[in-house]
């Protein structure tokens, strides 16, 4: 193995990959939430469609999208690899354990929360991204994503799945954001307060914004 692959496959290297891809996905969520929040203009989807069209057709964005898919894949595969090595590090568990005495449940459940998010991601991309890109590939035309949202979020079960996805996202980010900085070695008395504040605020605002979208459409606040 070269020094490079050796580094990335070491325990710290795998953690670093999780942190870097995690923070990359966090920046993506800002864009995603920002553009989708255009539906709250409640202008029949005009602003939303304008920006959706830009994101779906701009060549620079479309190129970056390859990086985004790669970011997701690396984060998922690396996470599963870490899950495997971490489980192997304790093949025989304790009969009596009291982990809540020393750590939060969500920090210990990043793999579980990540798996829930992966299931949500499959459902979510099957709803919008995959049909839209397939149609673009086949006909060159974009689908009317706004109308699709209005239709899909009439189903209360779908709304429930999306809200549960957002709740999983909240807990995943609440630990993940701060954890990424610690893994990158960014633990410093001058910045810890800032990282913690932004991490908590981000973890609340972004999932809440996302959760409000299916809820607002279901209850007809946005139409």
């Amino acid at each position: 193995m070269s020094w490079f692959t050796q580094t990335l496959t070491s325990s710290i290297g795998k953690k670093l990959l999780m942190a870097l891809t995690g923070l990359f996905l966090i920046t993506f969520l800002v864009i995603h939430a920002g553009i989708n929040a255009m539906i709250f203009y409640n202008d029949g989807g005009e602003t939303f469609t304008h920006w959706g069209h830009f994101m779906g057709t701009n060549p620079i964005i479309r190129t970056l999208e390859i990086g985004l898919v790669a970011g997701f894949l690396i984060h998922i595969v690396d996470g599963l690899m870490l899950w495997k090595t971490n489980a192997a590090a304790r093949p025989i568990g304790y009969k009596v354990s009291n982990p809540s005495a020393n750590s939060t449940w969500y920090s210990r459940s990043m793999g579980l929360l990540g798996t829930l998010l992966l299931i949500f991601l499959v459902i979510h991309t099957a709803h919008f991204w995959i049909p839209n890109r397939s149609n673009q590939f086949a006909t060159g035309e974009e689908l009317n994503l706004y109308q699709m949202m209005l239709d899909i979020f009439q189903n209360p079960l779908v709304v429930l799945i999306y809200v549960l996805g957002c709740i999983s996202l909240f807990w995943h980010l609440l630990h993940g954001f701060k954890s990424a900085f610690q893994t990158m070695g960014w633990n410093h008395i001058k910045y810890n307060g800032l990282v913690s504040f932004i991490g908590t605020a981000y973890s609340i605002v972004i999932p809440l914004l996302f959760a409000l979208m299916p809820i607002s459409i279901y209850f007809g606040w946005v139409s």
Partner: peptide
């Protein structure tokens, strides 16, 4: 194992 930064 690797670190999950739980702080335990």
């Amino acid at each position: 194992g690797a670190c999950t930064n739980t702080g335990a």
